[in-house]
Structure formats: structure tokens, C-alpha cells
Write a protein that binds this DNA or RNA. Structure first.
Lengths: 243, 243
DNA sequence: CGAGGTCACCGTACGCCGTACGGAACAAAT
DNA sequence: ATTTGTTCCGTACGGCGTACGGTGACCTCG
């Protein structure tokens, strides 16, 4: 069986069936156990920290034992992605059109914010697992009543999801840098403002300086991903609604 | 000098000044030469392929010699980013408001499409170099005449830039997967449609099936990043314009 | 009940990675 | 001629994903 076929079978494996007695020793953990441990590790320390060795250690296994659960690291990540998408809650939807559009974006935002490493998996082929498909189905159901037609409905869902992804990505950049360096964004900015000013001496960026300063003061930080998300969502919903 | 201070000095170093005679052997290449080789390598094979050893080999140096040009790999990437942003062209702007908004997004799209690895650098702290600042200045100049106020102007620029980034990211996922596996997206999809159908047997996703099929037929592919970009840009511009 | 087959588990090893360290070659300053 | 600061780089360390082959536990079959 090729790795692709094996991955597909694992993605669409059925519920916790008992495979009946098999030869050889029992598995010490389950695939779901592996995936949950992987999700916990990625949530806590990021996707880079999810190494086969580190995950195996967490499970009390040797590194190579993981390969009896999963064909390789890429496939592990794909399965983790579908597992968190399957676990995502799909809130009930309001009746008004704007509210439905917002709900799609906000649900995606919550999902990405809870598992920011989802956004770091985009070097991989997007696989259609049951989690991703159920999520897409829900998103379509939210947007379909607008009567846009199938293609535009798909594009609208993609747009709203992308909006959420961009916002969480911006948020994550700040949080990850803070954790790595141990200094908050504000501290770092203050420490670097003076040398930056010196470095820029002699060059003039009037708009950037004025706007950057105004934005920084309004945000109390260099960036404001949450506010940016609200702004982007307002604009997008306005652009989508018939006028 | 800390690495931060060194990076800042390198970012804002002045033009190709002759530093005068210095002790020791002359550098065999220049910092700009290192950065250009790094950009070429990342353009051709992606950011993952940009290892210190591979880059040094390209330059006819030993791996450790790179550390006389640059404090480390992260700093190298930051300097590469600012270099391509500095080299980006800033097209002249039309007078109409919608055209200006589109121009900002389209310029960003072109930049990201030419150097998709720019989108993979977001694990790093965003540093303000001369290239990034000049680009931001141009973007602000394009949006400012709308009279939105400083904070909203900043948010509008961020929104348009994020739109372009999302589209190129979707494009890049497809292209990268095609290059890695050697099979086009369509071939891959056709090869996996049947096993996927079998795997899904017994589950029902009526909307996803119908909309996915319609979108696939309309796009002639599973996704259509360029069309998605146009759609998103239309929606966003409509949402931004006063009504 | 014993034997054989099948499986999970894992030690070792290979070729990558970033980079710390220290030495050699070199050119300018003294 | 000696000192000093710099570039270049060989070696090494601890990480990574994973190929390969061995070991021992367990179920099934004779």
C-alpha cells in the first residue's frame, strides 16, 4: 500500500472499532492517542517542536515505534489537522445574513487561535478528511442561504476563512516572538526605537512615521491583530451584502 | 555588539560605500552578493532549501565563512526580505480611489508571487528595514487620499496586503506540491477521486459535494487562487468605498 | 500444548541541519 | 619585524527524519 493510500485509509478510518484479536503484541497506545499527544505538543510548543523523537518520548515509546502508527511526520501532521477540525464546534447560526457571514469567520478565528500551528501546515498538500469536509459543509450551509450560486458561495467561504487566518497569523507572530525572546512586543519596541531612529537618520518617511505613530498609540502596541480582524470583517461583510 | 544591534546596522547600512582598507584578507564576496545568492536560492528551491551549507557552496565558501557576513540564518533571512522589498517597483497610481486600492493589492500580489518564500518568514520578528519602510510609505500614499484617518489607513493597507498574501499562499501550496510530487494538481485529484469516494462511502456531505463539484468544474482545478484573488479584491474594494 | 508466523517495538546508523570553537592565513598598523 | 584585527574554514556537537534489521511478545494453527 502506498503512503497516499495508507494516509487516506487513516484519515477516513471509522470510529473506535475493535479490530478483533490480531497476532503479535498489542499496540501500547492508539492512533488517536498519538494524534492527541501531537496536538497537545504542537499547541504548547509549536509545530517545530513536534519532532518524532519528542512525541515518542511523551508517549513512552522509542522514536521508531511511531512509524507503526503513521507513515511519516508529514502524514502525522495531516492527521492531526483533520482531528482538530473534526473536534471543532460548529455554532448554531443566526438568521440574518451578516450574522451568518460573521459566524463563519469567527468560528475559523477561534479554531486557528486555539491551534495556531494549523497555519504552519500549508507546505503540505491539503487532504480532504472527514473533519475538513464536515467543517466545509457547515461553512457552506452558513453562506448558502445568501443565494450566491455555488461558485461564489465557495469563494465567499474561502474569503472569510482567509480573513481569520490572516488575523491569527499576525497575532501568532507577536506571541511567538515574545515567547522566544522573553520580552513583550512593547518592551522590544521601546528598546529598539532609539537605535532605529538613529539608523533611519537622514532618510525621510513622512507618512510612515505619522501613521505608524498614530497606529501605535491607538493600539498600545505596534500591531493590533484583533482590531484588524474586526475591521477586515466589517469591510468584507459590507462588500458582500447586496447594496 | 548584540546580534540585534548588528542586524539593525546591517539593515540600515548605507549604499555600496567603500569601507576603506581594512586589516586581514579581503572578503571574497560582498554582503549584497550573499543576499542575492540567498534570494536566488530561495526563489528557485524555497526557503527550506536555503541552508547555510548550500548557500556557502553556491558562493564558493565554507559554511562557517557566512558567519562573517551575517550573525546567523535568521538574520540572513531578515536581510533578504528587506532586500527584495527594497527592490520592488512601486507603480504609479491612478487617480480614482478604487484603482489605487487595487494597485496596492496587485503590487503586493506580484511581489509575493515573485518570491513566495516571503510568506514563509513569518515565524520571525518583523524588522523595519529601509525596504519595508519605503514600501509601507508607498502603500500609505496610495490609500491616504481616501481621507480615512491614520488608523484606518493603516488597517486598509494591512487588509489589502493580507488579501494578496492569502492568494499567493494558496497558489504556492499548489505549485509546491506539484513540484515535490511531480504530478499536477489535476492528475493527483483524478488519481485520488476514486479512493476518496470509496473512503467517504456511507457519509453524506450534500452541500460540499455539490459545491465542490461546481467549483472544480468552473475552475478546471480544485482551487483557483487567481480568480479567488480577483473575487476577494472586488469584495474588499466594494466594502471600502463609501456607499 | 507446542510450533510457527506475525506483529510492535526499538537500537543503530546515515545524511542532513545550525552553529560554537579555535587555528591558520593574511594585511594593515606600529 | 612584530603586533593586531579579520577572513576563512575544519572539526565537532546536538538536533532532525527515517531506512534497516533484530528481538521478543503474542495469537493462531496443527
Amino acid at each position: 500500500m502506498t503512503d497516499d493510500a495508507r494516509l487516506l485509509a487513516l484519515l477516513w478510518r471509522d470510529g473506535p472499532e475493535d479490530p478483533g484479536p490480531r497476532r503479535g503484541p498489542r499496540q501500547r497506545v492508539s492512533l488517536d492517542g498519538v494524534l492527541d499527544a501531537g496536538v497537545a505538543l504542537a499547541d504548547a510548543e509549536g509545530l517545530d517542536a513536534l519532532s518524532m523523537r519528542a512525541l515518542a518520548r511523551r508517549l513512552g515509546l522509542g522514536a521508531m515505534s511511531l512509524y507503526t502508527y503513521v507513515p511519516g511526520r508529514d502524514e502525522l501532521v495531516v492527521l492531526m489537522v483533520d482531528r482538530v477540525l473534526a473536534a471543532g464546534v460548529h455554532p448554531s447560526l443566526p438568521d440574518d445574513v451578516a450574522g451568518r457571514l460573521r459566524a463563519v469567520a469567527e468560528a475559523a478565528y477561534a479554531e486557528y487561535a486555539a491551534h495556531p500551528w494549523l497555519l504552519a501546515t500549508e507546505g503540505l498538500r491539503a487532504w480532504l478528511g472527514p473533519g475538513a469536509t464536515a467543517r466545509y459543509e457547515w461553512q457552506l450551509g452558513a453562506v448558502e442561504p445568501l443565494g450566491l450560486g455555488d461558485v461564489e458561495t465557495d469563494r465567499t467561504v474561502t474569503l472569510l476563512d482567509g480573513l481569520a487566518a490572516a488575523a491569527v497569523r499576525a497575532r501568532h507572530v507577536v506571541l511567538a516572538a515574545e515567547r522566544r525572546t522573553g520580552r513583550s512586543e512593547l518592551e522590544w519596541w521601546e528598546a529598539n526605537a532609539e537605535p532605529l531612529g538613529e539608523a533611519m537618520a537622514g532618510r525621510s518617511f513622512p507618512l510612515a512615521e505619522r501613521v505608524g505613530r498614530a497606529a501605535g498609540e491607538a493600539f498600545g502596541a505596534a500591531t493590533d491583530p484583533d482590531g484588524q480582524f474586526r475591521f477586515a470583517l466589517d469591510v468584507t461583510v459590507a462588500g458582500l451584502l447586496p447594496r
